[in-house]
Design a protein around this nucleic acid. Sequence first.
DNA 1: GTCTATATATAGATAGAC
DNA 2: GTCTATCTATATATAGAC
Lengths: 194, 194
Amino acid sequence: MNDSTHSLSRERVLDAAERLFSQRGYSSVTLRDIAQDLDMKQASLYYHVKGKEELFVEVTERSLQRHREGLREVMQNEALNWQGQLHAVTHWLLSQPPMNVTRVIQSDMPEISKVHADQLMMSMYRAMLMPLEQIFMQAQQETDLPLPHAGLLVGAFLSLIEGIRNAPTNEQYFSKDQAADQIIEVLIRGLQSR
Amino acid sequence: MNDSTHSLSRERVLDAAERLFSQRGYSSVTLRDIAQDLDMKQASLYYHVKGKEELFVEVTERSLQRHREGLREVMQNEALNWQGQLHAVTHWLLSQPPMNVTRVIQSDMPEISKVHADQLMMSMYRAMLMPLEQIFMQAQQETDLPLPHAGLLVGAFLSLIEGIRNAPTNEQYFSKDQAADQIIEVLIRGLQSR
DNA sequence: GTCTATATATAGATAGAC
DNA sequence: GTCTATCTATATATAGAC
């Protein structure tokens, strides 16, 4: 899509970069970290990519396109009600390398050029915020409670996902997906008794 | 508490460092950024602090102690029910520079020494996770719904706070506190009609 | 307490051999 | 495609004048 060569080793570079960037953020990850992860030398990466910023933009863009497609599919798969969609997209998001919207916006974006930052913001909106808004707009229509604006709910929901990701697995017998289901049920039904 | 001198200019250094670190994270912020913010030269910072890592640890520790004290106060102020406490601690957290637990753990901690990381993890638990767990344990007792483990709820709640912080203020006429109240009400009552 | 100057370390990037 | 060697830029850190 972006570059010419689609060799296998290039894919490996992108995969490693995406995993590291998405875990620790743009400025925390060095090209040497990525190379080391691949048992390569830092300079060898330059055969595959133009530079660090271009690498970050490409893997983030690639991840966002995958999110766009993945969310679309999981949302239209069997006409679920919005509650079911909420569970489904949660599981799908947790199956992916973390797309920590908060950190990307607050820490990563300021480190790259404005052109690239604007581009990623646009993609992020189209790939994640727009699709998820649809779910909450459905909820708006069905409920008789006064709900916050859908955009606000989407931001809150995406934060929740990242919170679940580093939930303490120590003291419990639950998988991430089970923990996620429990949290999503709270989001749907509330903490309070009826 | 930590160092000897408590001059006014030292406090200004710590304040600037805390604000920048808490906004953009450890590795994104350079000592030059902090110095520039204070109209100083980078080298001048070394009169006040031993180094970047020590500066980060000190301001993070200072912030956590403030959180410990602030949360304690706001929670015992007038015996609120847990719903009221949830709103109160939310407002208090939003009045502070962001303590983005997710980013601190995932991005900042790996950049510092294990000793310092362990120290901060401990303080973070005592200052934030423990006090907030009490609120959710109250909720557990009152509700007849099967709720997730309190630790999981705390993690989700703290993520929510950070999500609210960078909520889009563009298209709405609401303040952060109003947006927060709306989200917390969803957490309490749920999205779904009763 | 802050400065200039500089040392040292590290990161991104390039050149060229293989 | 990957390597070694190296350049350049930037960041942390130190020395010493004022």
